[in-house]
Design a protein around this nucleic acid. Sequence first.
DNA 1: TCTGCATCTTCCCATCGTGGGAAGGTAAAG
DNA 2: CTTTACCTTCCCACGATGGGAAGATGCAGA
Lengths: 149, 149
Amino acid sequence: MNIGQASQASGVSTKMIRYYEQIGLIPKADRRDSGYRDYSPSDVHMLCFIRRARDLGFAVSEINDLLGLWRDKSRHSADVMRIAKAHIERLQERARSLEAMAATLGTLVACCHGDDRPDCPILADLEEPSLIDWSGLKPSSEGALRRQP
Amino acid sequence: MNIGQASQASGVSTKMIRYYEQIGLIPKADRRDSGYRDYSPSDVHMLCFIRRARDLGFAVSEINDLLGLWRDKSRHSADVMRIAKAHIERLQERARSLEAMAATLGTLVACCHGDDRPDCPILADLEEPSLIDWSGLKPSSEGALRRQP
DNA sequence: TCTGCATCTTCCCATCGTGGGAAGGTAAAG
DNA sequence: CTTTACCTTCCCACGATGGGAAGATGCAGA
């Protein structure tokens, strides 16, 4: 199976398949005499696993852990559950952070008449806060979205 | 005012101040004879504006628009409101996407006994979906977090 | 004045996951 | 045999941020 077919079957782009190979997330693919990568059904299986984990927002490093457990037939399901639960926590925290941003901005929008006049509470408050208490929001915006350092 | 002091006063790191200058988000700072950048209180004002907009999750390109309106004394508040509302929509959509991921993963976790046994519905479903309907989740994970291309 | 330290300057590199594209080789169909 | 569709590797870009090196400058104390 060519990389393009593996891509179609798994929903992972060819660029990403090569990238995952390069960073060692997946083992080096077999090569044909031509140099073309050759994928087996079980390789595609693994790519599907990866794609679904990505769809759930797992980082590649976390998927690496999950793949290890996936391959380890003597794994403890508790280990998987721990990773999953921790990930749920992070997802929810990021969602909360986004909602807080939206709510804050909503407050400003509610105060803006939104017409032809130049007077605008949104800009005014960004300039010099009077409506909004920024103390709870400080963690620098997408900082709550970026992985913490 | 040195860049370090402007940084402290505004809460924007020196690295970021130079970066914002480099990409043209803020005008080139005045220089002293020494070559040191020199910031006025109104520069710091602008940096504060930027930081707060970042705290609200605005992308730098959006902040560019907001700064334009901020400086345009004849702006229409409706323009600002439109940008803000669109941003709220995006924030909420990303939050929803994250919550959907968390909920999906929660379903899997709820089915996992989480003990010493190797049997694990989480991995099983990543491998070969049986519990989860992935159709609503497909927009590739953080794709919902990343800016759409 | 000299010394040391803090701060500034520019420049390059890394992150993370993804896409774009060029230059060149191969497979398969017409 | 020609065309086309695919494959290969390699480099570059994004967005926003941080790290660090090498060298210049500012300021305070001896």
